[in-house]
Simulated scan of single mutants.
Amino acid sequence: MRIISWNANGKFREKFPFILNEDADIYVIQECENPEISNSDEYIEFASNYYWVGENQYYGLGIFAKNNVKLELMDLDAKGLRYFIPVNVNDDFNLLGVWTNPDMDGTKTSYYPKEITKYYEEHKDSGFFNEDMIICGDFNCDVRLKGSHAKNVCEVIEKLSECGLVDIYIYIYHQLTGEKEGEETKPTFYMYRHLDKPYHVDYIFMSSDKIKDLEICDADKWLHLSDHVPLIFEI
C-alpha cells in the first residue's frame, strides 16, 4: 500500500491533480478544503472516500482514499486538541492523520508537539495506539528549534516508542548516513518557500519492520505548490 502525507498550503482543490500523479492508495493532506463546501466537481469526485476535520472550512486536515480502501473513523474524542483523524484501514491497521494546530492565543512554538503527547496520553489505553499503526502528518516541530521545543519533540519520540513506533525518516537514513534527530539533510518544509530556510517538520511514525520504501520529494518539483514537500511511503 502506498501512502502520501502532504501539507498543501491551501487551495488543495486546485492542487490535488499534481499529487494524484503519485498514485497513492491514501492521501493524508494538511491545509485542505472541506469537500462539503467545494463547488469543484473534480475535487468532490476525488473526495468520494474521505474524512475531514477543521474549523476554517478552507484549512483543515483530510484523509482521502481510493474507493477500494475501507476507512472507518474511530470513536476517539479529540478533547479539543487540533487536528487529528483516527481511522482504521481495511480492518488491518490504524492510521492517525495529524496537523498540529493549537487553539491558543499567542501560541508558542514549543506547544505544538505537546498536542501529540496529550492526544497520546488521552487515548493510549483505548487500543488504538499499537505497534501495527501509522502516524503521519505535519507535526509543526523540529528539534533544531532547541530549548523547550526540542525537549517536547523528544517527549513525542519517547512516548510513541512505548508502543513500538519510531521516526521512519531517522530509522532509514540513520542506517544509511548516520543522521540523527535534528541532523536530517532532506527537509520537508521551506519557510516562505526559501531554500535557505529548511526544516524537518513532517513525520511518519510506525514500526520499523512495516516500512518498505520512503521518499522525501524534491523542493524543485513542489515548492511552486506549497512550502512543504510530500512524504511518500509504502508498507
Rank of each mutant, 00 (worst) to 15 (best):
R193T: 00
S126H: 02
C163T: 13
S226L: 11
V156M: 10
L214A: 10
A150R: 10
K159W: 03
K221P: 09
I134N: 01
D202Q: 10
F189V: 00
Y203F: 13
G164T: 04
L176A: 15
K151I: 09
S148K: 13
S148W: 07
H224L: 13
Y169Q: 05
H149R: 04
E215L: 15
V166W: 07
R193P: 00
E215G: 03
D196C: 03
M206V: 10
D142V: 01
C154V: 13
Y173D: 10
V156N: 06
K180R: 14
K146F: 04
A219H: 01
E131A: 13
T188R: 01
E155C: 13
I168R: 01
M191H: 05
D132W: 07
V156Q: 05
I204P: 06
T185C: 06
A219L: 02
E215F: 12
E155Y: 13
K180L: 13
E215V: 15
K210L: 13
M206N: 06
I157R: 02
D196S: 07
M206E: 05
I135A: 01
V153I: 11
N130L: 11
Y169P: 05
L176H: 11
K151S: 09
D209R: 15
A150E: 11
C217N: 12
S226Y: 07
Y173R: 14
H194Q: 14
S148P: 05
D218F: 04
N140T: 10
M191P: 00
I204S: 08
K186T: 09
M133Q: 07
Q175V: 06
Y199T: 00
I135R: 08
S148R: 12
F189N: 01
Y173P: 09
Y171V: 11
E184W: 01
C141Y: 06
G127R: 00
N152T: 09
V143K: 01
L160R: 00
